[in-house]
């Protein structure tokens, strides 16, 4: 049984189509990164999955249960962190988690134990008795993760958990997510920060203008959607090589740059096998002094730009 699935999920806000016929199947116990530019429909999908918003058409199932707006049964199975979590600022973190525990009808003993565990997990134990109003953004985000985990959810929804955080705050939250991997829940994380998704997610779905562009594993995505690049560094100018390489049929693109006294060439190949065989021979024949030669896979960012950017062109 998939942890999350939806068929034909569509959401209209007046004439704006926020989600367009979204089909998605996410297996149990994976971290799914839902990528897309701002306004692509990520938050809309997330709100429908958590029952906080209604789809115009289509259906969704979470942990085997059909999503119905404000369903207590569904909400006892999920955890949710909004993009900018808001709390009752007059409470302390401990009081807030106790309040959340009570909403799940936990006993006082269970609440005490769970609060201790969660505050430890998100590294807020020392600040648990401070008012939330005094918390930094990173601390609020971590408290948001803690409240979402109170009921040991089968599926955890995180909406842009690292957006608007400074580098230190981002690192704190990502560290927490990496630790969460060990808790074996399914995590659905929306983000437009590719590096974050690359770091923690197993599977990625890319959405643009309400439509799912692709759904795949991170590595598989790199292999499928972007051509490998050969990075070659010389001690002398590589200008004579550029023209030659550009004329070859198995070369797609050549770019060059100079950094101090190092001349770099980036060669994208249409036919990687031929490039692997031919490039060393061409370099050797050029008489240039080789510093470095490597085949690099594209980053998720390059895949993303290729998929989303190409569609927009």
């Amino acid at each position: 049984m998939p942890a999350i699935s939806c068929r034909g999920l569509t959401k209209h806000y007046g004439s704006i189509v926020a989600l367009d016929n979204l089909d998605l199947t996410i297996e149990d116990k994976v971290i799914f990164g839902f990528l897309g530019p701002n306004g692509a429909g990520k938050t809309t999908a997330l709100k429908i999955f958590t029952g906080l918003s209604r789809a115009t058409s289509g259906k969704a199932w979470i942990a085997g249960e059909e999503v119905v707006s404000h369903s207590c049964s569904l909400q006892s199975k999920i955890g949710y962190l909004p993009e900018e979590p808001a709390f009752y600022n007059w409470m302390t973190a401990k009081e807030y988690l106790t309040f959340v525990g009570r909403l799940f009808s936990f006993s006082s003993k269970e609440i005490k134990t769970r609060c201790g565990e969660l505050l430890e997990l998100v590294d807020l134990s020392r600040d648990a008795s401070r008012r939330i109003s005094t918390y930094s953004r990173g601390m609020r985000q971590r408290l948001g993760i803690a409240q979402a985990l109170m009921n040991k959810p089968e599926v955890l929804f995180l909406d842009e958990p690292c957006s608007a955080l400074d580098p230190l705050g981002r690192a704190e939250v990502l560290d927490t997510l990496v630790r969460l991997k060990e808790q074996a829940a399914t995590i659905f994380m929306s983000s437009h920060i590719l590096a974050d998704v690359e770091r923690v997610c197993d599977i990625v779905g890319i959405i643009d203008r309400g439509k799912l562009v692709v759904e795949s594993g991170v590595e598989e995505l790199r292999q499928r959607f972007a051509h490998p690049v050969f990075e070659i560094e010389f001690e002398e100018s590589a200008a004579p090589l550029i023209g030659l390489l550009e004329s070859l049929p198995w070369v797609e693109k050549v770019s060059s740059e100079r950094e101090d006294n190092v001349f770099k060439l980036r060669v994208s190949a249409r036919d990687v096998a031929t490039a692997k065989a031919e490039l060393p021979r061409i370099i050797s024949g050029s008489g240039l002094t080789l510093r470095q030669y490597q085949l690099v896979l594209p980053t998720l960012e390059e895949v993303f730009i290729e998929l989303v950017g190409n569609k927009r062109d």
Binding site: T50, G51, L52, H70, C72, S73, Q75, S76, I78, Y80, P82, E84, P85, A86, F87, Y88, V100, L103, F104, S105, G144, Q147, N151
Partner: peptide
Amino acid sequence: ESGTAAITLSKPVGS
């Protein structure tokens, strides 16, 4: 407006 209702109502709470 502040967003606290969204978190509270994502728990098993009747409106």
